[in-house]
Design a protein around this nucleic acid. Sequence first.
DNA 1: CGTTAGCACTCCAATCCATCGAGTGCTAAT
DNA 2: ATTAGCACTCGATGGATTGGAGTGCTAACG
Lengths: 341, 341
Amino acid sequence: MLTERQRMILNAIVDDYIRSAEPVGSRSISKRGDVAFSPATIRNEMADLEDLGFLEQPHTSAGRVPSTKGYRYYVDHLVKIGEVNDLELERIRIFLADKMNLMEQVIQHAAMILSNLTNYTSIVLGPEIFSNSLKHFQLIPLNEDTAVAIVVTNTGHVENRTVSIPPGMDMSEMEKVIRILNMKLAGVPLTRLRSQLYSEVGAELGRYVTHCEQLLGVLDDALAREGDQRVYVSGTTNMLTQPEFKDVDKVKLLLDLFDETPTLMKLVGSLPDGIQVKIGSENGHQAISNCSLITASYSLDGQSLGTIGILGPTRMEYGKVISLLDVLSKDMVSTLSRWYK
Amino acid sequence: MLTERQRMILNAIVDDYIRSAEPVGSRSISKRGDVAFSPATIRNEMADLEDLGFLEQPHTSAGRVPSTKGYRYYVDHLVKIGEVNDLELERIRIFLADKMNLMEQVIQHAAMILSNLTNYTSIVLGPEIFSNSLKHFQLIPLNEDTAVAIVVTNTGHVENRTVSIPPGMDMSEMEKVIRILNMKLAGVPLTRLRSQLYSEVGAELGRYVTHCEQLLGVLDDALAREGDQRVYVSGTTNMLTQPEFKDVDKVKLLLDLFDETPTLMKLVGSLPDGIQVKIGSENGHQAISNCSLITASYSLDGQSLGTIGILGPTRMEYGKVISLLDVLSKDMVSTLSRWYK
DNA sequence: CGTTAGCACTCCAATCCATCGAGTGCTAAT
DNA sequence: ATTAGCACTCGATGGATTGGAGTGCTAACG
């Protein structure tokens, strides 16, 4: 579809624009050396590329700027996936070698590392704990009418909430119930926990316990979970250093978006495995119409664990970010798999 | 120190400036009605007030703006503590009546309510869990070499972390240890937990358990806590609507500050009980030199529980914010005390 | 003596204007 | 097919000009 020379020129323009954030003219391309044609020739090609929709002109007599389509072509055909340089690699290795306690810590730190290395904003979707299974369930009374329910999953994740105890419930009975629960429910995926609670355990409990229905209600309460996935956003302020966000109003739109967990989840979540690039308007959100989102979803044993995403201006360093995400997500998977097996 | 008329004028200027964010001139004061003097007279007084350091002039031939000293005088002597209007009051009551599970939830929601009602940013220091005591301790093995340690306090707060189990540790021994720990340590304030662990329990454990020292190490590890207090910041983007933050660089400074938990804690924490106002440079931080911080520390039975703070431009609605904080903190104390007793 | 009207003065902010330069499109020459 | 040349466009930059809001001072007034 494009001639070799057009590709070279498009590549040069995108590269230049990524560095400078300013419309690039024919002369500067010509001077770069890798496209050895005169400005006039390049101008002609640029006009063609604009007709084809790969470039845009802010106004006549300004240089060209890549369009969404231009970026798309760039990431699909032109971008050179950068080598992750030694310093970066070292930081990633150190980070992964550092013994961390919880899977959540790993995820969260990964987000920080990424936003540091790239100077963009990272959005990380925590492991889908729905896909984990129950390790241990505990109910700890605080006083006569309230107790803390604690759920521990096989990955070491801990959820807790307080529930109220129905009056007349007996301590020793409760302990009995908890013992039964742990015996019957250990290993059950969290998704099926509540249904299993009624179908399997309900009957058996009836024999031992008087206030069975109330107790089941409490347990149901304890296991009802909102917001199962956590979203970690890191390096928000990095965006503010980008010239495309010198306008406070845009900043506000962006930051408000970061606060809306559900929207973020929709944005980052439910993407196919591997590395995905969404450019500008492609992700269809007002506040980030001039941003690109690069995501890497990682999984373990076929189970999707979560997604790491980097949000930057459309004019972002695709090659570098993609290589970083690639390395990090692969390393994370191997590290996580070593731990949880 | 100030004449009655000077007070009236100062009050009028601060009020006007809070509304308009623009230097206020003598004419507009005169027209307000509540200071029935001619502009000329007011000019003279304004000149005096400037000499005394209560007002500042951005440049000759601009109106006056309150100085830090001016604001200080205003909040100390002039401000009318607003009535909390019915709508606001209702929202607070509803929020408090809403049955919430954890103390932390209450705190966090309070922050949100406040930033919503005021359109400023709220910074809330969670309850000092140091001052709480141990309710229950639990160690749940995940696999051969790791376990999750869970600490539950008397207020229902749950802390958890994973620890590695020394090789050769036996399950049944561990259960024994945990039973002893809970018997010996229940009710002990978290602050003294670690010392008590060694002094009281250490000896007794020696009798039952073989790998005593290692186990103590594990427990020590589990109880070592960084970041005991949590800081909740809510409504950060509200600041961006204030004209004093139309400059992106200032926004970045501010947002970076919000990300620095320790700095925030220093800023909000360790303040005497009751309502405190820190104006502009008084809080001595570059990023918020043009902000004021109003804090309310609340306590229960003499124990300091935490602090609620509202951060706004120096030009903030002191009267309104103070009254809101007052109502909310008092209501919170009474609600919390009803629960945890 | 306190208050006020009047007036000259200051200084920011907005507007206009000229200029500059980077970049283009087109044409003609190579 | 490529390129040199040239006229043209258009935003950005940097004074000058002007308008208006506000001041300080002085003199008049009750």
